[in-house]
């Protein structure tokens, strides 16, 4: 059984269809990235999974349960919405203690100490959360979401509104948690770099439909033809080098792309020959990289296509 199952899910608001026949699954222990532009319906999907909104059509299950009907099953689930779910006038400790009580956490004091240390807030534990920065609140929100050691945790854009340092800290925390606590992580995001680094599987939601659903590896590798990026020591040589490379039989195309060359190859094993040919022609090479498409390119392509349809 999968940790999360979504089958044929549709949902409208006021006659406007937001989700159309959405299906995907998330396996146990995966870090799943749910991608889509603003307003795509990512938060709506999470709300339906958590039983906060009813599905219009289709079926959703988390750990095999319908969380709308099953109050107890929600004890195995954690969630972080964009507002963190914290009371500003209560201390960090007080907020966590409240949720520990609601979820029936055993040895709450010990668990709270452990988590406050993990997110680096141990020395602020008695301060009201209202005095915290956005990043500190988010870290405490994550601690709150995983306090009861949930089997599945839903994170709705956890790095939005954070500075790069805090984003990185959140990213590392997610990886650490999935490894240490063996949690399944459902990550809503439009932060592609983060998703590429953190997630094992992704689904791209745009125009109400799932446009892609695969492992990050498969998505980024499936670029069609093999290609390499070549940087030259003397950028002034780029145009001539491109001409030289373009005449080689195993090079199917070559363009100047920024300050490097981008060559597509007929055969993935042709890279050493290409390098030898360029060096033989007198070009000095600084760096050669096999290029795969970034998740960003794939994402923009799908979202662009969805916008074209609309």
């Amino acid at each position: 059984m999968n940790a999360v199952e979504v089958r044929g899910l549709s949902r409208s608001f006021d006659g406007r269809e937001i989700l159309r026949d959405v299906s995907f699954t998330v396996g146990h222990g995966e870090i799943f990235g749910y991608l889509g532009p603003n307003g795509a319906g990512k938060t709506t999907t999470i709300r339906i999974l958590l039983g906060l909104l009813a599905p219009g059509a289709g079926e959703v299950r988390v750990l095999g349960r319908d969380l709308a009907a099953d109050d107890e099953a929600r004890a195995r689930i954690g969630v972080l919405f964009e507002n963190n779910g914290l009371a500003d006038r209560m201390s960090a400790d007080g907020n966590l203690a409240y949720y520990a009580g609601l979820y029936g956490v055993e040895d709450p004091a010990e668990r709270i100490d452990e988590l406050l240390a993990l997110v680096g807030l141990a020395d602020r534990r008695d301060d009201p959360v209202g005095t915290f920065s956005t990043g500190m609140k988010r870290k405490l929100g994550i601690a709150r979401a995983i306090l009861h050691r949930p089997e599945v945790v839903f994170l709705d854009e956890p790095s939005s509104g954070l500075d790069p340092g805090a984003q990185r800290m959140v990213r590392d925390l997610i990886i650490e948690l999935s490894r240490r606590e063996e949690m399944t992580v459902f990550l809503n995001s439009h932060h592609l770099d983060e998703v590429q680094r953190v997630c094992s599987t992704v689904a791209i939601l745009a125009g109400g439909r799932i446009r892609a659903f695969d492992s990050v590896e498969n998505l980024t590798a499936a670029s069609g033809r093999p290609a390499v990026t070549v940087s030259l020591a003397d950028p002034g040589d780029r145009a001539r080098a491109c001409e030289t490379a373009g005449r080689l039989p195993y090079v199917t195309g070559c363009d100047v792309n920024g300050d490097h060359l981008h060559c597509t190859l007929a055969d993935p094993g042709a890279t050493p020959d290409l390098v030898a040919a360029l060096v033989g022609a007198g070009f000095r090479i600084e760096e050669v990289r096999r290029s795969s498409r970034s998740l960003e390119e794939i994402y923009l392509e799908h979202v662009g296509r969805a916008e074209g349809e609309a």
């Binding site: 929600r74 969630v79 919405f81 507002n83 779910g85 979820y103």
Partner: peptide, 11 residues
């Protein structure tokens, strides 16, 4: 909006 988090608790 913190009510939303509370509604997800096992209560």
């Amino acid at each position: 909006g913190t009510i939303e988090t509370l509604l997800c608790a096992p209560v």
